[in-house]
Design a protein around this nucleic acid. Sequence first.
DNA 1: AATGAATGAGCTTTCATTCAT
DNA 2: AATGAATGAAAGCTCATTCAT
Lengths: 183, 183, 183, 183
Amino acid sequence: MTSTREKLALKAGLLFQQKGYHGVGLAEILQAAGAPKGSLYHHFPNGKADLALAAADIASTEMLRIIDSSFDPAQDYANGATTLCYKLAKFFDIQEGKIGCPVSATLLEGPDNATFQDALKAIFGAWIARIKDHAIRLGRGPEQAEKDAQLLFLTIQGGWTLARASHNSDILRGLPALVLSDT
Amino acid sequence: MTSTREKLALKAGLLFQQKGYHGVGLAEILQAAGAPKGSLYHHFPNGKADLALAAADIASTEMLRIIDSSFDPAQDYANGATTLCYKLAKFFDIQEGKIGCPVSATLLEGPDNATFQDALKAIFGAWIARIKDHAIRLGRGPEQAEKDAQLLFLTIQGGWTLARASHNSDILRGLPALVLSDT
Amino acid sequence: MTSTREKLALKAGLLFQQKGYHGVGLAEILQAAGAPKGSLYHHFPNGKADLALAAADIASTEMLRIIDSSFDPAQDYANGATTLCYKLAKFFDIQEGKIGCPVSATLLEGPDNATFQDALKAIFGAWIARIKDHAIRLGRGPEQAEKDAQLLFLTIQGGWTLARASHNSDILRGLPALVLSDT
Amino acid sequence: MTSTREKLALKAGLLFQQKGYHGVGLAEILQAAGAPKGSLYHHFPNGKADLALAAADIASTEMLRIIDSSFDPAQDYANGATTLCYKLAKFFDIQEGKIGCPVSATLLEGPDNATFQDALKAIFGAWIARIKDHAIRLGRGPEQAEKDAQLLFLTIQGGWTLARASHNSDILRGLPALVLSDT
DNA sequence: AATGAATGAGCTTTCATTCAT
DNA sequence: AATGAATGAAAGCTCATTCAT
């Protein structure tokens, strides 16, 4: 059972990811979620902004889950990073090449206010920290792990952009070869 | 002397870069350019879309110029890449941390049509090709140059995103250390 | 009590009848109905087109009512047709000679799409059928009734046009003499 | 050789006939005529209104020519009227059922000013007078000829409307049977 | 708790026209 | 005589939001 609230946040998240915060109207979200017109402000009193924050939160949690599920069974960092990139490529393909970073599209594209900025910074920080944790656990030194995590995050972000621009998920699958060439 | 047409495209480009295609209204662009309402569709018959394509074209040309001016005087690839990242960081600071990739914000955020997709793909391809050319000229082997160029492009794209999210241009300045650590 | 929706359709209908579909702006309709700008698309999701279809429907129903109220008390076909023409002439005078066929002005003048075409054909067919029914009831043979109805319809349509062009409602009052001269 | 002025009036006339005065923009006319943007106000100083009056004048002259060419070789009134209706039906088919009275669509649909009204009244009067002249020449008495002409005019007007509404030019071909049944 | 109605500011675009050359 | 540039008003429509129930 998914509540109306949850359904709204999920559909909104996907649409934001595809078209960016300003590229999606509430009417489209309501219709996609099959939710009645008046119900949005019941669940999200601050309207579109609340919806975006909720969607970004869900997307961030999901991303952390994907990171964990990629690195947890890995035997070394390279292996985990590769699995992660392949998983992201698969999601990309499922959405037919129309998606990029769910959080950038939702918060970075949104209105330029402190709430969004803070949430955005915190989420990206959490992703990098999580990757770093796994790197350390898998034997990388603390300094190297920090660099590993940053580099992987940056190339994934850039990879999402380039993959979308070229309609080609292999960009994402090629990231490990680019990043791990020397290890 | 800047013509009305050029002024419109320039101002539109900057605003798109800051707020994304759907985050900027034509009224805002017209006002910023000091142009009367009716003149837009004289110069850009297809309206906002034409304006975005023109703005992206200008931004792309400018980016190629920055790449050239960074690598032309460089003695090796690492030196050129570092100069490029520092230049981009400086532009970022001038715009008070509110800008990312001018082309992504304009075309990738825009309407999902073939014209935009094709222009986007071509522009990114040209940037990567230009970096690769410089890498080869500066002594990298063809294969290595291709990887160098892709990696630099991807990290710059990711760097723009993270720099904006964290309001910190040092992300961009730190890219060379991340990318060139092993060479 | 007239709802906002009904008021909008009624006022729109009158304005379309006077100026034609493309000759009337939504602002004018909204103002005439005393309705706020945003409410139109709540009641008529497809905007002006929906409004026109609703207005044409109302006008058609009203026309059928006028036909009935003209023929119901009539003792023969000629008498009913004469009453009908005089009633239409009276409406014409009330509107100061500025109106013609409410449905032609609304649907035939409107955008060239299938929905409008179908509605238009159906409405005109219903008018002719209704006149034919009365003709049969009043003793005309089936074939003659069909011709009677068609001829009356055609001359009323032409009469509206000529009456408007010459600012003279007597055109309409003269139709029976033209059509029934031989019977 | 057709001058730009003539080409403009002709194309404008056809477009008005199809979509009504307010349903056609100057840009569309200019494009259809292949005329440069600035040339319209050179040939028609009063703009769209001048263009409409010129187009209506041409259409009226053409209509008088069609009336003459239908009645001139006719042996009796019925024969001439039938030829006229068939000719109009043929024009209707050539334009794929998208046209009605060229003058109604241009002047009656246009702005509600005295110039248009006067021109409209004069043109329709001339058409009826011309039909009447032929009727007299072909042996109808003066009073009967007046009625004949009015009735034919009215049914043609109504016929144009119904033919357009039902996408069926046979409406026009059936007019003589309706009008001449008793003579 | 939940929702259809209502709202006015804003959107992109097209309009008929005027102007400078 | 002829025309591309320029113009502001108005077009139809969508927006995120508030309200009454």
